[in-house]
Every structure is written in structure tokens, then in C-alpha cells.
């Protein structure tokens, strides 16, 4: 057996050119750690990206990589996956790339459910073009392109992915290496499309966008880590939790409100019904802590498997294609010498 691969084996010799302090560094590191943990052969991994800071990612990983055009990485990745279904295909994209110029491809990637993993680095700003509002920038945001404040409301990628039919949906902060690695491994193992929003800090043009959860010390109050089968608790000592009131999620303080843990919502990421995942995905800070972890994972027919199966079935029924037979099909006639 070949020698085990270590993290460094996945690091390319290209000098990384993200700004010092960029959240992308942490993600890159966690990604290579995940690769080594999975022991994926380097030639079996393809990273496809669009355009933007995040989309430089493939250059820095020593696997196959394709830096394509703005917003359209899902289509390139789909073509790769349909041709070689056994490759591990990853899309690295950003909020502008995936949700603005590539919104259409994003939706259709989710609904087709190919076994492709999409990592969306969401920093709520256009970084590579130096600081314009992005589709996830909050209303009122002052940027170079919105000097008097952003009028558009933001787009929320998690509910979008769920609505479009994503079968694996997760969110992680760029500062939690262990959580990123763990979720990437789960995403890889999931058969079908995996969507992972990574809350990523752009320290140059939008520093502190995810401030409430950036530091470990603040994370307990400002986030809730979803764990399948466990009650949804958060806060110092896990004293707070989510409870259902009517159709709404409410925050309860178990000690102060005298609520028993048995009254809390229990996370069910495998539920066939997307309602709970959708409600969690729609919770907005600061009214609620940011839910983190895996929101939903369900089994559904995998696109490229369906495509190969159909081709196989047709060949089984009609016989393997034969050019001569095809050219001579239908009505023909002979002209003799």
C-alpha cells in the first residue's frame, strides 16, 4: 500500500496571495486537513471555482483544479462529474459568485443533486473588486457602490439551498478549524449535493461582518451548534435553548424560565420534512444565535448515477451503440453499379 498522505501533500507550491489575515487561510488549512483525513488520492480530486478571492482556492491545492468564469463553476463541475463520476468534485465560490452572477446555476446544482460539494465563502462583500455590496450585504450597508447605504435586502444562502432541494446543508465559521474539517468530511461522505456556507471574514473590506462568532469567547452566546438527536441548547453552560411556540421558534432560559430540557426542540437532520431545517436556516442574528453545523442531510437520487443508469439501461435494451447500424437506420435504398 502506498504511503499515507499527509496534509502537506495536498498543498501546492503556488504562493498564496490572499491578504494577510484573510479568513480564507483557515479554510484552506481545514480543507487540506480534511483531505488527509479522508486519504483521498490527489488525482481523484477536482476543485472548480468561479471568480473572486475565494475562487483562487484551486491554485493552492495540489489536486486537479479549474479556475473558470464568474458564477459558472457549477456547470463546469457538473460536466466533470458526468464524465468521471468517481472523482471527488468540489466547488469553491463566494457570495457574489454563487448568489449574484451565478444564482441560476446555484439553484440548478442544488435541484439536480449531483455528488458535488459546494463551499460558499460568505464575506458579505465583493473583495476582489475592492469593496462593493454583495447579495448578502445587510440593508443599509455603506460600501463603495452604496455610499448612502444599501437599499436591497440580503439574500440568505441556506434557505435558498434548502428550497432548491439541497440534500446536505451546513454552516461553519471560518475561525473554527475543527468544525470546518468535520463538516467537510461529512459533506464528502454525503451522496448527493452538499452545500456548506462558510462565514468568512474579509479583514480588508468588511472586517468584523461575523464578529459575534469570530472569537471563541463570544461563540457560546451568539451561536447554536446543531447536533443530531440532541436538544438545541446554547449559551454559557448551555443554559438557553430553542422551544417551539406555535409555529415559531423561541429562545428560553431554562434556569430563569423554569423550562425543562425535555421541552426543547431536538435536532433531526435526517427528517424528510425540511420545515425544521428551513426555520433554523431563516433565524437571523441578533434576535437569535447563528445556528451552525449540519442543518439537513437526506438521501435522494444522485444525478450522475441516474444519467449513467439511463445510458446503461438504453444500451442494455437496444444493444451497445453501433455507428454502422445508426447510419443505416430508417429507410434506405440501394443504388447498384
Amino acid at each position: 500500500m502506498a504511503e499515507a498522505l499527509v496534509r502537506k501533500d495536498y498543498v501546492s507550491d503556488v504562493e498564496v496571495r490572499w491578504c494577510v489575515g484573510c479568513g480564507d487561510y483557515g479554510i484552506l488549512k481545514a480543507f487540506t486537513v480534511a483531505m488527509a483525513k479522508l486519504q483521498l488520492p490527489r488525482e481523484k480530486v477536482v476543485i472548480v471555482s468561479g471568480i473572486g478571492c475565494s475562487s483562487r482556492f484551486p491554485y493552492y491545492v495540489d489536486t486537479y483544479g479549474f479556475h473558470s468564469v464568474h458564477g459558472r463553476a457549477p456547470s463546469v463541475a457538473t460536466g466533470v462529474k458526468l464524465t468521471q463520476p468517481d472523482l471527488s468534485v468540489w466547488i469553491v465560490t463566494g457570495d457574489g459568485d454563487a448568489l449574484s452572477i451565478g444564482g441560476n446555476h446555484f439553484i440548478h446544482l442544488m435541484r439536480r443533486n449531483p455528488d458535488i460539494n459546494m463551499l460558499l465563502f460568505n464575506n458579505q462583500i465583493y473583495g476582489l473588486t475592492k469593496g462593493q455590496a454583495s447579495p448578502t450585504s445587510p440593508q443599509g450597508k455603506i460600501t463603495k457602490s452604496t455610499p448612502f447605504g444599501l437599499i436591497d435586502g440580503p439574500m440568505h444562502p441556506l434557505p435558498m439551498a434548502l428550497t432548491a432541494g439541497a440534500t446536505f446543508v451546513a454552516r461553519v465559521p471560518d475561525t473554527d478549524n475543527a468544525m470546518i474539517t468535520d463538516v467537510l468530511i461529512q459533506a464528502h461522505k454525503h451522496k448527493g449535493v452538499s452545500f456548506v456556507e462558510i462565514m468568512q471574514n474579509c479583514n480588508i473590506f468588511n472586517d468584523g461582518a461575523w464578529f459575534p462568532i469570530a472569537k471563541k469567547a463570544n461563540r457560546a452566546e451568539n451561536s447554536i451548534v446543531l447536533k443530531h438527536g440532541e436538544p438545541m441548547t446554547f449559551g454559557e453552560n448551555n443554559s438557553k435553548g430553542f422551544r417551539l411556540k406555535g409555529m415559531d421558534i423561541e429562545i428560553v432560559d431554562m434556569e430563569k424560565d423554569g423550562v425543562d430540557v425535555s421541552e426543547l426542540l431536538v435536532h433531526d437532520m435526517y427528517s424528510k420534512d425540511a420545515t425544521l431545517a428551513f426555520k433554523l436556516a431563516n433565524l437571523q442574528h441578533p434576535e437569535f444565535p447563528y445556528p451552525l453545523g449540519v442543518f439537513r442531510q437526506i438521501e435522494a437520487p444522485v444525478y450522475e448515477s441516474g444519467v449513467s443508469k439511463q445510458e446503461h439501461d438504453v444500451a442494455e435494451k437496444l444493444g451497445r451503440g453501433d455507428v454502422k447500424k445508426m447510419l443505416h437506420s430508417g429507410e434506405t435504398w440501394e443504388v447498384s453499379v
Binding site: 468564469v69 456547470s75 457538473t78 441560476n104 446555476h105 439553484i107 451497445r320
Partner: peptide, 27 residues
Amino acid sequence: HKEFPVTTFQAEDEIAAIGAAIGASYA
């Protein structure tokens, strides 16, 4: 003519159609 096999991908738009073709060619 899937029996050859031929893979046909009806994309979400013209752009994705060529994008997928480029990805397929790359692979």
C-alpha cells in the same frame, strides 16, 4: 442515442450548457 453511450445534458441556460461541455472536455 444514449446506447453509444452519449451523454446529453439539458442545462438551465445557454451558459451552463457550454460550461458543462467545457467541464466534460476537461475530464
